[in-house]
């Protein structure tokens, strides 16, 4: 059912912006007015899994609240599938699926009814709603819990049901706000799989997260947000590449003797793309190649190497470089 509709959604030009945010600002008034969103522009192409990565309080949830008609922006505009969410909230909601941070399942209704009535709210006939419910319960492996009440579900199951319900009316965009908050690792991976499977249904996904692993594993593109602004926007691979090397050797030194000289000597090793000062020593950025590590260690030893760690650049590295702070702070 609804095959034709799905194809219509999936067959759009890929370059078309399904979520278009321009100059978005949100200031919460009162005595201590807080600028939660401070001029965000975002252009999400259809069919992507798009991530908003940033620490708590960065403005991610506020951005999503505005995009999903739950908050009124102070300035700027949001269009979902061409519909202005501030001017036409009720109509825009037809293109929007939402999974908020907290569990909003209808506790007076069973698992199946949660999906069924959601379909009814969006205008499906009783037969259509029943068929769609059965299909989603199957797809999200909830078929053996259809008559259970949400209170009886584990966190992972409840989250899957929330996603199933959110996409029941074939929205064009699914917003997931911190989808893995409070999930155990196994449920998180199951949730990632469920989200990735949505790609095949032509649903664009916009999610917020402060877990860099999640952003890295799930998202096609990312915007890193801090203090209500977008700092950088690109694919996870490009963001990590921007660090300038695919290996990082963090050298901890006994004291900081002649670090300038050490820096110069490390810099000329073939394959090293950069050396920078970190707390207690130096960080060497390099392209992975045989023998490089040995050379680095040999030279550093002459200057009193105490310890060394090898890592690969992560989104965390990108965030720290942009803000000077840890993502988890």
């Amino acid at each position: 059912m609804n095959r034709s509709y799905n194809q219509a959604a999936g067959g759009r030009r890929v370059s078309e912006a399904i979520v278009e945010i321009v100059g978005l600002r949100k200031v919460y008034g009162g005595k201590n007015s807080v600028t939660a969103v401070d001029g965000i522009d975002l252009h999400v192409e259809a069919g992507l899994i798009y991530g908003l990565l940033g620490p708590n309080g960065a403005g991610k949830t506020t951005t999503i609240s505005i995009a999903t008609t739950r908050a009124i922006p102070t300035a700027g505009s949001v269009k979902i599938a061409g519909v202005d969410v501030v001017a036409h909230p009720a109509l825009a909601r037809r293109s929007i699926g939402v999974v908020p941070q907290y569990n909003t399942l209808d506790r007076s209704c069973t698992v199946a009814e949660n999906i069924h009535f959601h379909c009814r709210y969006f205008g499906m006939s009783n037969a259509e709603a029943t068929a769609r419910t059965a299909q989603l319960l199957e797809q999200f492996r909830l078929s053996d819990r259809t008559q259970a009440y949400p209170q009886a579900l584990s966190g992972g199951l409840a989250q899957r049901l929330q996603i199933a319900r959110a996409i029941a009316h074939y929205p064009k965009v699914l917003f997931l706000d911190e989808p893995s908050a409070g999930l155990d690792p196994q449920s998180r991976i199951a949730m990632w799989e469920a989200v990735q499977a949505l790609r095949g249904e032509g649903i664009t996904v916009v999610l917020t997260t402060h877990y860099m692993e999640e952003a890295d594993a799930l998202c096609d593109r990312l915007a890193i947000i801090d203090h209500g602004r977008i700092l950088i926007e690109d694919t996870p691979a490009a963001l990590k590449a921007s660090v300038g090397g695919d290996k990082m050797y963090d050298l901890r030194m006994h004291g900081v003797r002649d670090s300038g000289l050490l820096e110069r000597r490390l810099q000329v090793i073939e394959g090293v793309t950069g050396v920078e000062v970190i707390e207690g020593g130096l960080r060497v950025l390099a392209r992975a190649q045989d023998g490089l590590l040995a050379k680095v260690v040999t030279i550093a030893n002459e200057f009193g190497l105490r310890d060394m760690t090898t890592t690969e650049p992560s989104l965390e590295t990108v965030f720290i470089r942009l803000t000077g702070r840890d993502l988890r702070e």
Binding site: T69, R70, L91, I96, N103, D106
Partner: peptide, 15 residues
């Protein structure tokens, strides 16, 4: 507490 009204508020209907 439960915020379960959210899904009904998100249906295509003016608030």
């Amino acid at each position: 507490i439960t915020r379960e009204i959210d899904d009904r508020v998100m249906c295509p209907l003016p608030i």
